[in-house]
Amino acid sequence: MKTKNVMIVGVGGQGSLLASKLLGYLLLSQGYDVKVSEVHGMSQRGGSVVTYVRYGEQVYSPVIDRGEADFIVSFEVLEAARWMPYLKEGGVIVTNTQQIDPMPVITGAAEYPADLVKKMKDLGVKVDALDCLKLAEEAGSSKAVNIVLLGRLSHYFDIPEEAWDEALAAVVPARFLEMNRKAFTLGKNYREE
């Protein structure tokens, strides 16, 4: 099979490393060759962060380039728009609708663009947008935004639910497992209103 590409984008500190860890575990368990590329250090301090997850028969490059992503999983709307050019034709953006102002917006040097989800859809991009913070809180913790997003992503994958659950159990602490399971299911079963 051709290598598949999933980008996870967000704001430093939002929990994208756990999401990539879960995907890495899951895809390895399905027998794929897997590469996951992260960025550490300076850019983690509230900056724009991106993680690349690639899987297939044999994966070479650890990074995903413009026009290559099958999925962009985004923790924040502006970040989805920033990385949209990395989506391949026919790819899907799964995004949290949360908005976090970057410093140039806070200081008034720039404006946070309005209606980003609509603008992306108007370009013909498939955008699956959901309020993950609300669903995470419904599951029991605002920190489960990452698992809600993965639950939503799972909806597009042909991988058995038990495998996702096993990966979830492998990467989240046991005492939070039930809450995260709930978050995963809420994301997976979300229907646009």
């Binding site: 509230g46 900056g47 724009s48 502006l78 920033r82 970057p102 720039a110």
Partner: peptide, 8 residues
């Protein structure tokens, strides 16, 4: 334009 998000 998409505003930059530098580390802070």
């Amino acid at each position: 334009p998409i505003p930059a998000r530098p580390p802070v």
